[in-house]
Amino acid sequence: MTRGDKILVAVILLLAIGCAAALYGRFLLLDRPRATRAVVTVRGKTVRVIELPSRGIFVLQGRSGPAKLEVAGMRIRMREAHCPGGICLRQGWIRRAGESIICVPGEIAIHIEGAAMLDAVTR
């Protein structure tokens, strides 16, 4: 490895750490909002809002065929999908507010939303 290589690696490392701090920092430092619901979108349209905790299997019509979403209590995973690669399947369970499962071939996105995501409170 040349000096230039090392500098490049160091810069990317710092960049990654910086981005991580900026993006994840508020989840680590502050209380993460409690997960309250999962919002499922297919091709940019919200097709389902699942209140958490919940239980069951939901069938979604993604771009690459039907996909099965499993909800078990506070956890959600993609149980069955026919997208090439099956990345969403390998991702496993998600459970915290702010987490998401994104299936690019199926154009399916599942976001867990938290209680603290309020714009205002009427009182």
Binding site: M1, T2, G4, D5, L8, I12
Partner: peptide, 10 residues
Amino acid sequence: CFSMIGISVA
């Protein structure tokens, strides 16, 4: 200043 490693990392 980069070897193949640096280029490949980039």
